[in-house]
Amino acid sequence: MAMEVPLHKPVMLDRCLDLLAPAFEVSNPLMVDATVGLGGHTEGALKRFPQLTVIGIDRDPSALAYASERLAPFGDRFIPFQGTYDQIPLALDDRLANGILMDLGVSSMQLDEVERGFSYAHDAPLDMRMDPTSGESAAELLARVERGELVRILRRYGDEKFAPRIADLVIRTRSVTPLTTTGQLVEIIRSAIPAAARRTGGNPAKRTFQAIRIAVNDELGILEAAVPAALASLTVGGRLVVESYQSLEDRIIKEIFREGSDPHVPAGLPMTASDLDKLRSLRLLTKGAERAPAEEAAQNPRSIPVRLRAAELLTPWRNHVS
């Protein structure tokens, strides 16, 4: 029986493909969609570039199954791989890619499936794992984490100024009853945050849920490993395009791209533009972080927080010295 795939419009699809297009002007180009999700970006790429093959990576087996069925009409031009996106070299199996796309953050499917526990809008098991078959759930994390570590998680990953109050109430509550549902966590957050603060800035649970999700899935740790792995997996002239959804992700991308595009030439040393290019590993393809155009933001709210950055590999990344 065919799966009913809840399709969502991929964010900034045309812009991503425009940035990747010059890297695909070769025979039989290869792309890695490092976060394939429901396959929207990959479907767009396979339609636009008839000779392209895409390896689609996702840690979520359900998402990968959806994407595989959606992309079945493309035959062996789509190759699924279950894993995290720092496993790009493993997915490529000693090959090099011409282009790599990373669309970060939680997928629409994960938010839509209430039982996954990503949403604070519905009561559900407190899970939040992108791969529900492995690792520690949010409930397990909250059952064992010490107060200081929980405060750090909420502050660093959620920018939550009431982190100590929330952490105290989590510790107090779990001493009486296990925290097993999203509804329990929402009630703790509501009780810990002063009423005046709850009236502004959207749902007060958003920051805490984001922080715990990031911690459960080690999203930033994996991203810090994944970007160098992606760059090392590109051919010279290949391109990496990344869409991030919050400032912590974007900061990692920005720093690695800055390091790779900086020739590190001592002041006063005479160098031509050509000389400088030979010392760079990357050429930046976007001026800062691009945002979705106003029309797309109005039609697709998921695109509003996106920051898009892209770079072209000028020299093999393994030769890059940071």
Rank of each mutant, 00 (worst) to 15 (best):
V114K: 00
E243M: 12
R318D: 08
A215Q: 15
D168M: 00
P61C: 14
A230C: 07
R155K: 14
R156I: 08
L220D: 08
D131P: 02
A34G: 15
E140N: 08
A273V: 12
R152F: 00
M12Q: 05
H264N: 10
V5P: 00
L185W: 04
F118W: 13
V54R: 02
S261D: 10
L96P: 01
F24Y: 14
K206P: 02
V11P: 00
R59S: 08
P61R: 14
E219M: 03
A267H: 01
V151Q: 09
L38C: 11
M271H: 03
V5A: 13
A139L: 10
H8K: 13
R318N: 05
S247F: 07
R165S: 14
S244V: 08
M130W: 03
F209N: 02
G40Q: 09
G105H: 02
A273N: 10
R258G: 03
R48F: 01
E224T: 13
D18E: 15
V227I: 15
Q82E: 15
C16P: 01
R307Y: 07
E187A: 15
A292L: 01
S107G: 13
P228G: 06
V145M: 11
I88A: 02
T173H: 05
E69L: 01
L71M: 11
A292N: 02
P10Q: 13
A215I: 12
L46V: 11
L269Y: 02
P204Q: 09
R59E: 13
A205P: 00
A294H: 04
S137M: 10
E146R: 09
G221M: 03
S107W: 01
R251T: 01
E140W: 04
V32H: 03
V265P: 02
A205K: 01
L38K: 14
H320C: 10
I189H: 05
E146S: 09
S107R: 09
E312I: 03
V151C: 05
N203V: 04
G37D: 07
E160C: 08
D159T: 06
P6K: 14
P178Y: 05
M102I: 03
D250K: 04
Q299P: 00
R207D: 07
F209T: 04
I171T: 04
I189T: 02
V11R: 00
D277W: 06
L240E: 08
D86F: 00
P194D: 05
S247T: 14
L92G: 14
